[in-house]
Amino acid sequence: MISSLVTAFVVGGLICVIGQIFMDVFKLTPAHTLSTLVVLGSILDGFGLYEPLIDFAGAGATVPITSFGNSLTHGALAEAEKHGLIGVLTGMFEVTSSGISAAILFGVIGAFIFQKRKTTY
């Protein structure tokens, strides 16, 4: 159990380091960095490499934003596997991500509860 926590820490930290390198060395804005990471996660799943990473690192791989690209691609691929080329299209409309629905829901609740500060981000 402790070893799971350590691997989650190390792998999650390393993915964040990749993001930091994008921001500092390649001078990308946070939005560009996050988009790049999402595309990266999606491509890794295309090669079938992201699921093993989740098996290895648990939350270290599911919490970073890369897992968002992975879960979308995974849904589309699962549907494509069943129904072929048309499955790619139908699969795209079936996949959801708990991250997005949670962000929408808690965004509205947050706007309802909290008052505006000078800057919140």
Binding site: M23, P30, T33, I65, F68, G110
Partner: peptide, 22 residues
């Protein structure tokens, strides 16, 4: 944290929620 707070899904949530409150 820099990217350490932006890359996890909490950073995504923060971007959405702060814009909503704003």
């Amino acid at each position: 944290g820099g990217a350490g707070s932006a890359v996890p899904v909490t950073g995504f949530g923060n971007a959405v929620i702060s814009a909503a409150i704003e």
